[in-house]
Design a binder for these strands. Structure first.
Lengths: 202, 202
DNA sequence: TTCCTGACTGATTGGTGAGTCAATCAGGGC
DNA sequence: GCCCTGATTGACTCACCAATCAGTCAGGAA
């Protein structure tokens, strides 16, 4: 890609990684593009060499990661394990993502999936796609008789995804502890609670 | 209060109501203070006569409404009906608030409770107070043997509140229908799902 | 009638920060 | 050696907007 830096770092990547830290620390609106450039150790203008605008930096970060989530959901559905394992795999993917890169997940949740006027609206199709994927999985569980049918799949999805996002929010706000143990317990408890409420009673 | 307008409207209130609409429509950061003044049909400077800053307008809106939520939670706990009714009352209060004034609830959720860098951090004590209230209610249900004890009250609260907030978010994004029937069903289904997952199995 | 208070006005200011652009520099092909 | 391409730089521009402030106006008190 770069002739000048054959073995050197990809500056575009460096800028994106710096942007994650800056957006997480100061918020998208509060930070300045020069903050990103400084954090990346790069000249101001280079940000505009690689990205058309400040917005495009955030769009890129979101799309990169959300694509992985959509793939994870599709993969789970393809392997077709028992419903509990499916939901566990999805919850784990999201929680693990946070554990591995809390700053990035913070940015995605705070600045995109919950930003109803700006980026959230813009990325609504991709966000909805994730909901639809989860809803399809739940619908199948209902058809197979594992889940009760008096709660719509779309609604069950909102409960499931909402619980996970609230969990991440609590970590983001540092309102609950975040040791590796807490992460492990949390996944298990979300699945336990939601599946518990959706399963057909014996 | 006003000597000049003895029988006239309270301009402070007019400004707050206009701010709700403007914040909901354009977002706190994107809108200008002049938008609020125009919407209120009031001179620009009057906003600064009643409020020290743009921030203070949002702070006021949030605190006004959140106080009502905290009172509702306390009241439910005081009356001490069965646990299902308690959670139903809380879910109903929030969903009804949205139904009655969607713009205000949109602003509170999008701009405050989910704004981890700005207003959310600032109002964390009040937000946490609501969580604590709900957690206390769930803890009592556990002590009385109605709820299973292997899921912590704090965690159960996150699931419950997270599901509700995700529901509102879906309405805010216009991702799900919002007829009076949908509101009624929604409350019922949140309580059903979460209680279902938390109750002790027969 | 005069003065005082406080609601109300809107032009102005001052700071800020996104995006531009002209210039520099390094490497590769000829 | 020379040109071309594209990465890289950072000073500058320009629009925007929060906050200020000097003033107007209305009603009540004295």
């Amino acid at each position: 890609m770069s002739a000048r830096n054959a073995g050197a770092v990809d500056k575009r990547r460096v800028i994106l990684d710096a942007a994650i830290r800056v957006f997480a620390r100061e918020g998208f609106y509060s930070c300045r593009v020069s903050d990103i450039a400084n954090e990346a150790g790069v000249a101001y203008g280079l940000v505009y060499h690689y990205f058309r605008s400040k917005d495009e930096v955030l769009d890129t970060l979101f799309t990169e990661r959300w694509t992985l989530l959509l793939e994870a959901i599709a993969e789970v559905d393809r392997r077709d394990p028992p419903i509990r394992e499916k939901l566990d795999a999805i919850a784990s993917f999201i929680v693990d993502s946070y554990q591995n890169d809390p700053d990035l997940m913070k940015v995605i949740i705070v600045e995109v999936t919950r930003a109803a006027n700006t980026f959230g609206r813009a990325h609504l199709p991709e966000i909805s796609q994730a909901y639809d994927g989860i809803a399809a999985i739940i619908r199948k569980a209902q058809e197979e008789g594992a889940f009760r049918t008096d709660i719509s799949p779309e609604f069950a999805t909102l409960c499931f995804y909402g619980a996970i996002e609230q969990l991440l929010t609590a970590w983001i706000f540092e309102a609950i502890p975040a040791t590796p143990d807490d992460f492990a317990q949390a996944k298990q408890m979300v699945v336990e609670t939601v599946c518990g409420g959706l399963e057909v009673r014996a």
